[in-house]
């Protein structure tokens, strides 16, 4: 059976990273971290002996209209513990460091978030659209996305038989 990371260890984590904050009242508080110390926190969570969150279970982003939230679900294989790390981002130009240096397996999921949500990942090895066409305009999973029918362009083959 799996548990959430205990309050005492969360408090220790906050001592280690003062920038981190969480809601001590909640049952399973998500750890909010500013974008610039995200990589350091994840590296600590992954490599420190007391944590060993070796698996990135899920990576996604949520559009809360006034801001974006990156959500990272980490899971420790040895002591079967969860932790949720969140990053709040500006709605104007959301940029977050790519976590591929720590979790190489985040590559496709970050590309997906970039594609559908329009969040920029700095330091990503190959940041291109992954699901939508390369010439697609807009990011459909954003709440303010309005689908416009693409203009009908007649396809004329030049010199075709």
């Amino acid at each position: 059976m799996t548990d959430y990371m205990s309050k005492t260890r969360l408090a220790e984590l906050q001592k280690e990273f003062p920038a981190v904050h969480y809601d001590p009242e909640a049952a399973q508080p998500a750890v909010y971290v500013p974008a610039d110390s995200l990589l350091a926190l994840l590296k600590f969570l992954r490599e420190d002996e007391s944590c060993r969150f070796t698996r990135l279970a899920d990576l996604t982003a949520v559009d809360y209209k006034d801001c974006f939230e990156m959500v990272y679900h980490l899971f420790a294989l040895e002591d079967m513990t969860w932790i949720v790390v969140k990053v709040k981002l500006e709605h104007g130009q959301p940029v977050v460091p790519s976590i591929t240096p720590v979790f190489p397996g985040a590559e496709f999921e970050e590309r997906e978030v970039y594609d559908l949500m329009g969040i920029d990942f700095t330091g990503h090895p190959d940041l291109r659209r992954i699901l939508l066409a390369d010439d697609f305009i807009g990011h459909p999973l954003r709440k303010d996305y309005v689908q416009e029918l693409p203009p009908v362009v007649p396809r004329i083959r030049k010199g075709g038989r």
Binding site: D58, T60, P104
Partner: peptide
């Protein structure tokens, strides 16, 4: 959000 195993495994 759906974490699809096939999608991640493709890496």
């Amino acid at each position: 959000h759906i974490r699809r195993p096939s999608f991640v495994n493709m890496q």
